[in-house]
Amino acid sequence: MSAKILIVDDSDTIRQQVGITLAQAGYQVLEAQDGVEGLNTIGSARDIALVICDINMPNMGGIEMLTAVKADAKNANLPVLMLTTEAKAELIQQAKRIGAKGWVVKPFKPDQLAAAVRKIVGH
């Protein structure tokens, strides 16, 4: 059975673009449009293998969502990959300290994103 990946981004275009890339790579895709919806989806869906998450989103941004995911013992090992236009080293280091698995600066290259996901998910 293919691994399930949650994409959290307020842009429909980005969610669809990432979704197409991941579906072509053989993954199942779930979507959420902000951090609040992302946390709800993580709470209700089973067996999510990876979360791909934007930074600047309404309601709850990516850093807040990452912090909440890592603070919950049930999800502490859930890998989170940030996908954003933000590129500042200080912010990247902050996400790394909180527990992010990686950081991709938009616009992304589909083959590189798929390769990064394979490396994190393991298959």
Binding site: A87, K88, A89, E90, I92, K96, A100, K101, G102, W103, V104, V105, K106, P107, F108, K109, Q112, L113, A115, A116, K119, I120
Partner: peptide, 13 residues
């Protein structure tokens, strides 16, 4: 300068 990554960069930790 404030250190930044480039567009399209993929960093894995």
């Amino acid at each position: 300068p404030i250190q930044v990554s480039n567009e399209g960069d993929t960093l894995l930790f």
